[in-house]
Structure formats: structure tokens, C-alpha cells
């Protein structure tokens, strides 16, 4: 009898746990598609949105590539309802790894709501990948068009060569901090670095543009600026 009671209590607690876990599609607001990717790259796009209140949290992001269509599904998790859930929207940003793609043009759909196109160029046919970007993990605004890329230099054998900036013509500036190899001898020595860069973010059509910085690990650092009050 005790065992039956225990089992039914377990069942109730399990079912109540399941009742609390409510996975739904996220309320997505904007899709940023950076430009300048080629068939050698690991492609990333950025999705922003709002959680209805602080009782929601970011959950999973799934990516499905079928022919020239990329379907992205961003879900949110509704947490414990008994908590106090103040009525305030919580903005979120998801950096979505689409991965490596064959060169060509793709249509991207997010949660059946947002659409855009992605162009993947055909990479040059080099024997080996000798591209190197800086390891960047922060962006500082110094005023006007002046920004500073902050990051790390892992060895004295590399240094910054040049910083290229490519606009997608509407809402995203891709920043490519290209490194050069100074020596074949690369002893590990971690030093913080700061590279000044001029970004014409205020010229973008959108008041909340994305700054998409390509990084050494093959991925990117992404920052959505809010230029509304500065206009």
C-alpha cells in the first residue's frame, strides 16, 4: 500500500514538473544576415526578440538546411508559474550557427515569421586555410564613428594586419580583423589587445544595427547597437 502511495505521489510530481515546462516558439523581432561569407566559413546569423516576461527563458535553437532553404526555429521555455512574473519584456539575442554551406543563394526563415536571403560566395581554391582573424570578445564605443575592438593575442608570432568593414547595405556591418603571421615560432603568451576601428554605423538604415566581428575561432562576436537616442 505504501509503495502504491509512493508511486502515485511520484507520478503526480512528474506530471506537475511537465506541466511547468512549457516550450513555445519565441517572439522573434529581427533577423540579421551578415555579408561576406564564403564556402569555407562557418556561417552565423543573429536573431533578436523579446521574452514576454522574466518567467520565460531562452531554450533551444534548431537549424534545418534543405536545398536552398534554411529553416531556423527559436524556442523559449516558460518556467515556474508560481514565481512573481512582472509584466516586462526581456530582449534576447541568439547567435545562430548555420554551419558550413555550399556557395549559392539561400532563403532563411525564422519561426515562420522572419525572412531574408543569404549569399555564400565560392571560396578561393587555396591548398590550405591560411586566413587568421583576431580573437575579439568585446566592442567599445568611443563616440561618433570611433570604436575599439577588445580581445586577446595568444602569441607574439601574430599581429593585426588590417581591419576590413563590409556593410550588408541595411542592418549589419561585418568587421574582419585580419591577422598576419610574424614568425613560425609561436610561444603561448596571452596579452590583452585593443584595435581602434571606424564604423559608419550611424549611416545604416536601421537604428539598431548589428556589428558582426569575425573571430579567430572561426565564429564571431556580435553586438547590437542602440543608436536611437543618439540620432
Amino acid at each position: 500500500m505504501k509503495q502504491i502511495l509512493f508511486a502515485s505521489l511520484m507520478m503526480m510530481s512528474i506530471s506537475s514538473v511537465y506541466a511547468q515546462l512549457d516550450v513555445t516558439a519565441a517572439q522573434v523581432k529581427h533577423l540579421y544576415v551578415p555579408t561576406g561569407f564564403d564556402s569555407n566559413d562557418s556561417i552565423e546569423v543573429v536573431v533578436t526578440g523579446n521574452l514576454p516576461n522574466p518567467c520565460y527563458s531562452r531554450n533551444t535553437v534548431s537549424v534545418d538546411v534543405k536545398d536552398d532553404l534554411i529553416n531556423i526555429h527559436v524556442s523559449v521555455l516558460k518556467r515556474e508559474e508560481k514565481l512573481n512574473c512582472p509584466a516586462m519584456q526581456v530582449p534576447f539575442k541568439e547567435v545562430v550557427s548555420v554551419g558550413n554551406l555550399q556557395g549559392g543563394e539561400y532563403n532563411i526563415n525564422v519561426n515562420g515569421v522572419l525572412n531574408d536571403t543569404l549569399k555564400v560566395a565560392e571560396a578561393e581554391s587555396g591548398a590550405v586555410d591560411d586566413h587568421l582573424y583576431a580573437a575579439i570578445d568585446n566592442l567599445e564605443h568611443k563616440g561618433g564613428d570611433n570604436y575599439v575592438l577588445h580581445g586577446w593575442r595568444y602569441s607574439t608570432c601574430i599581429d593585426i594586419d588590417k581591419v576590413e568593414v563590409i556593410s550588408n547595405g541595411k542592418d549589419t556591418l561585418s568587421v574582419l580583423p585580419i591577422m598576419k603571421l610574424l614568425s613560425d615560432f609561436c610561444p603561448m603568451k596571452l596579452t590583452p589587445v585593443a584595435y581602434p576601428v571606424k564604423l559608419g554605423a550611424r549611416l545604416m538604415k536601421m537604428s539598431q544595427p548589428l556589428i558582426h566581428v569575425r573571430t579567430m575561432d572561426g565564429k564571431s562576436f556580435n553586438s547590437v547597437l542602440d543608436l536611437r537616442e543618439r540620432r
Binding site: 564556402s39 569555407n40 536552398d68 555550399q102 556557395g103 549559392g104 555564400v120 560566395a121 565560392e122 571560396a123 581554391s125 591548398a127
Partner: peptide, 22 residues
């Protein structure tokens, strides 16, 4: 390897391109 980009056939780097993948 380099010649293979021109003569290796699919999969190609780009859907409308000429070069085989690495």
C-alpha cells in the same frame, strides 16, 4: 590537389561554380 579543384567533379564549392571542394 590544385588540379583536382578543376577536374575533381562534385561536390563543388558553389552550386553554380567550377571548383571542387577541398
Amino acid at each position: 590537389h590544385e588540379l583536382g579543384h578543376a577536374l575533381g567533379g562534385p561536390p563543388l564549392k558553389s552550386r553554380n561554380g567550377w571548383s571542387s571542394t577541398e
